[in-house]
Each structure stands twice: as C-alpha cells, then as structure tokens.
Design a protein around this nucleic acid. Structure first.
Length: 433
RNA sequence: UCCGGCGUAGCUCAGCUGGUAGAGCAGGUGGCUGUUAACCACCGGGUCGUGGGUUCGAGUCCCUCCGCCGGAGCCA
C-alpha cells in the first residue's frame, strides 16, 4: 500500500504513469474526446479518453459507466489548469469494478429531507467530503492542544445514574436491576473528580440531550470537549478558552486549505477573527447592548439565539458574555462574591451569528453553598453524594468549560446547519440512517 | 409543546380567479476533439401526502390526520 497512488499526491507524479482506484463522480462525452471525473477519497481528478490514445475496450466501457461506478483507471498524469485540482490523467486503460445502479444524488440542488434520507450516500459529495475532513482536522487539533498544554484525557461514562444538570432532558434506558440509566449530557461532573488526581483534564465524547429542539443549532447526539482545571478562577478560565479556540482554529485552517476553498469559506477572515483579543462583556453590558439595539429583553432573562446573533454582529471576534444571573444557570456554578445574584460563568459566542460554542464557569467549591443550591433547585440530594465528597477532601477553586464540536465545525466551515457537521446526525425526528 | 411554511415524475420545482398535469435534471437512443452541474435532438416516466367535504367538475377551495422544514422554549 505504501507506493499506491492517491489523487491528493498528483502534483508529485506529473509525467508519470499511475493507477487511480476510485469512483465515477461525473462524465462528459464530446464524441471522440471523453471526460471522466474520478474521486478516490483523497481528491478529484479528471481522466481524458481520446480515441486512438486509449484502448478500444476503455472507450466501450466509458459508455456503460454510471455515476458512482467503481473503477481502476491507469494513465499518465499531466498538469492541466483547466481540470479540477489542476492535474489530469491521459487515460490508457480502464477496468470496471462495479457498475452502480441509478444513483439518487445528482450534481445539483436537493432538499434537506432527501439528502438526510440518503446521508450514507450524501457523504460522498464534495461539500460533505470537505466538511468531514475539516471536522477531522479540528478534532485532531483539539487533542493536540490538550496534549501540548498538559491536559490529561479522562474518558467519562456515557451511561450514568441520576446525576447531571437537569433531569427532564435526559435519554433514559433500563439498566438491569438498578432501575433507570441516563445517557450523559456532559462529562463535567466526572472531570471535577479527576482534577484532584491530574490537575488539568479533558474529555471528548458524545453527549445526549432529549430536548425537542428543532433548530439549525441543535442535535440530540453531539460531541463535546470538556476541560477542567484545578486552582483556576473564572477569568483564567476565559484565558484558557481564548487560547484554545485561537489555536484550534489556526491549526484547522492551516490543515484544510483545499477543504475551505471547496466550502467557499474565507480562511483569512476566519483567522483574523481569532487573532485579536476576544471581546469580553458582562451579562449586564450584554443586556444594555441589546436594549440599545431595540431588542426586547429584560435583565434576568436568558440570551437566546437571536440575541446572540445581534451581540456577535457588534464585534469581529468571538465574544465572552460573563457573570449571568444565578437563576438561569446551573447549580454547580460559583456565586459572585460581591453580587450574590450572579454566577461566575461565561458563554463564548462565535462570530457571524454561529451562536454559543462554549459554556464555562468557576465551580462552587464550598460544600455548604453547593448543598444550599442543590436544595434551592430541588434536585435529588442523595444522587450527588460523590460529587459533594469532592468538596470534603482538599476542595480547591476550580473552573472548566465545554465546547460543542459540531457548532464549532459549522462556524469554521461557514455552513448553515450543524446537521452537516456530523457524519450521521441524530435529531428529534431522525434516527436513520 | 407552541407559532409559521411546505408536501405535484427518481430529484428540484412551475401549475393564476376551480375546467382534468408541465419544465429542467436523472434514465434510454443518436450526434459532437477540451468539457467544467457540457451541449443539441428524440423517447419513456404521475393514485398531485391521507381521509372526508363543497361543486356539474378539485392539484387548485374547506376540514381532519400524517410527514417534513424553520423559529420559540432549552441548550453546546
């Protein structure tokens, strides 16, 4: 396999004879000159068949080829600016591996329902190819950042007992004779346990929300990166998030020039958005800003999707909104020392209206205050035994955050809906394919 | 759950104030020596989402249900 040719490496093979093993993306015939657009998973390349310059067998087979048929094509690579990818193949021989049936997805516009029904095939098309490669590069960059910055990977459980943020939005399943198990909404609480062992930790895995959300920003199964740091306050927490986002966006753009071009995403704009210091405004300031834009909000209400868009349009960097009212935030967040109606927390809003990509906070390390909050929220106290234990044995100030991978991919790719940012999206009305 | 929009050919859609269904693409056949979602000609292709109602007559108007899309709530 080592010396096998892949389309991605075409520039290094100009003038050489190679073999492409791949699929027919499209074909065009001009009578005596025929064009075959091939893809092999690493790129796209045009093969040219000219009567007299390739085998007669190849010319016959060309007629039978349908979209997505699998083939083995051999020929000479040549630089050709008119061709897709800048290089093309003068085809000598053609071997058919499989003739595809009528392929449902054409190189033209389709509706979302049809495309999602055919997601298993849709993955092959150019845009989807590019998006999932960006996702791969982003995930790689995230893991790289964590390793280079001393975070230890802690794999948190997906099946959990009755613990989490809220209980109304959890998926349930039977669990032997232990009653009900819930699918994890976040690994955060478990990460909090792990900082006492490793100081800086992260998790990376699927999370589940049984919310009946039907918007371009929601999935019922999505991937999240949580990070948690001991001896860290909410401001340092924002510093870490900022450094993290800057690094992973920069690296992903560096790794995916071709993919971003296919997606018509302005890579320079994207990088410029993260190079400058991120804007940081308090919740109070955010409400004032919204009011000044004639947006109808009251202090105390949450900042929704439309409001996030207005805020993000006011800056050309991501924006931290910090210190929200305690009432609209989770029980584990630390109370503001002077203004007890606030929590020490932050949301990071992506530019260009892509919405919240990170939620973070300093956690309450005082057991009495934490217990009071659990009771205030009427949460099942007995379920939080081990979590409360963490405040009994060397409790420290600590903070952490969770990044939504699909929302980040959507922002980096400049796509309108996060369903395209994951290979097989799970949404309220979609469990297949 | 609530609000709004949409269901017509394999796909994307058009079809006006009701008169009995159309285009492009895909598929098939033929043509063309440089195409870029190639192009040109011809051919096949429909229980107009379901059930009911109004009417001489319903793709079109009314009601029911089903499905989908977006938004709200909730959040990453």
């Amino acid at each position: 396999m080592k010396d096998r040719f892949y389309i991605r490496d075409a520039p290094e093979y100009a003038g050489e004879s190679v073999t492409v093993r791949g699929w027919v993306y499209n074909k065009r015939s001009h009578g005596k000159v025929k064009f075959l657009i091939l893809r092999d998973g690493t790129g796209f390349m045009q093969a040219v068949l000219v009567e007299g310059e390739c085998t007669d067998e190849a010319l016959d087979l060309f007629g039978d080829l349908t979209q997505e048929s699998s083939v083995i094509a051999s020929g000479t690579i040549r630089k050709e600016p008119r061709a897709i990818g800048g290089y093309e193949m003068s085809l000598d021989t053609l071997e058919v591996v499989h003739i595809a049936e009528d392929y449902p997805i054409q190189p033209k516009e389709h509706g979302p329902e049809f495309l999602l029904d055919n997601r298993h095939l849709w993955l092959r098309s150019r845009r989807q190819w590019a998006i999932l490669r960006v996702r791969d590069a982003l995930v790689f960059s995230i893991r790289e950042y964590m390793r280079e910055n001393g975070f230890v990977l802690i794999d948190t459980p997906i099946l959990t007992g009755s613990i989490g943020e809220e209980s109304g939005t959890l998926f349930k399943t039977e669990y032997f004779d232990q009653g009900v198990a819930y699918l994890a909404q976040t690994g955060q609480l478990y990460l909090e346990a792990a900082i006492f062992s490793h100081n800086k930790v992260f998790d990376f895995g699927p999370t589940f929300r049984a919310e009946k959300s039907k918007t371009r920003r929601h999935l019922t199964e999505f991937w999240m990166v949580d990070a948690e740091v001991a001896f860290c306050d909410n401001y340092e927490n924002m510093d870490i998030q900022e450094d993290f986002i800057r690094a992973i966006v920069r690296k992903t753009v560096e790794r995916c020039p071709e993919e971003l071009e296919i997606l018509e995403r302005d890579a320079e704009k994207l990088v410029s958005e993260v190079e400058r210091p991120f804007a940081r405004i308090t919740y109070d300031e955010a409400i004032e800003l919204l009011k000044s834009k004639d947006f109808k909000v009251e202090w105390g209400s949450d900042i929704g999707g439309a409001a996030e868009t207005i805020i993000s349009e006011n800056y050309d960097t991501p924006v931290f909104v910090y210190n929200y009212p305690k009432k609209i935030k989770a029980f584990y967040m630390k109370e503001h020392p002077e203004r007890t109606e606030l929590s020490l927390c932050s949301d990071l809003i992506a530019p260009e209206g892509y919405g919240e990509i990170i939620g973070g906070s300093q956690r309450e390390e005082d057991i009495d205050k934490l217990l009071a909050r659990i009771r205030e929220e009427k949460l099942p106290e007995e379920a939080y035994g081990w979590y409360l234990d963490l405040r009994k044995f060397g409790s420290v100030p600590h903070s952490g955050f969770g990044l939504g991978v699909e929302r980040t991919v959507a922002w980096v790719c400049g796509i309108g809906h996060i369903r395209e940012a994951i290979p097989f999206p799970r949404m309220i009305y979609r469990l297949n394919p």
